[in-house]
Write a protein that binds this DNA or RNA. Sequence first.
DNA 1: AATCTGACTTCTA
DNA 2: TTAGAAGCCAGAT
Length: 140
Amino acid sequence: MPRTEEAEAFFHAVYSAIQEIPYGKVTSYGHIARLIGTPQRPRQVGVCLKHLSADPSFTFHNGNVPWQRVINSKGGISPRGHPSGAATQATVLRGEGVTVSRNAMGEYSVDFSEFGWFPRQLPSHVAEGLDPFIDSDGDE
DNA sequence: AATCTGACTTCTA
DNA sequence: TTAGAAGCCAGAT
C-alpha cells in the first residue's frame, strides 16, 4: 500500500483510469500516465499494478481492475522478470478475445490494431484507422 | 539515510 | 531498424 496520501491519490487515479479500458481492448502504461496528468511516470503506473491485491475486500483489486489490458508502448506484454506473469496475462487477454502472439523467445505481444490508443512513435500509416478508446485530455 | 531496482517511454546514434 | 542512454520516482534493501 502507498505510504503517503499523495501516493494514495496516484494509485487511485491509476486504477480508476484502467477501469475505463473497454473489454477486449488494450492500452499502454504511458497512456494511463497521460490520462491522469502525470505523463512522466509510466513506470509508476507499473508499480501500481504490481501492488494490486487479489483480496476483494480492497477497493481496488485483481477482480475489478483490468490489469491485463495494460501493456507497453511497443505492443509487448512486459515480462516483469518472471515469465509466468506475462504468460498469465496473455491467457487472460486471449480469454476476452484479444489476439496475442508469442515469438521464439517466449515474448508475448499484441497487434497495434488491438490498441485503444497508440504510442507517439507508431508510424502514421499504422495509426490510421485506429480508434482511441479515450481522448487524450486534449493536449498536443 | 543511501543506494538499487524496475509490470516504462522517448530521444539519439 | 536496432541499441543504448537518459529521465522518471515509489518501493525494497
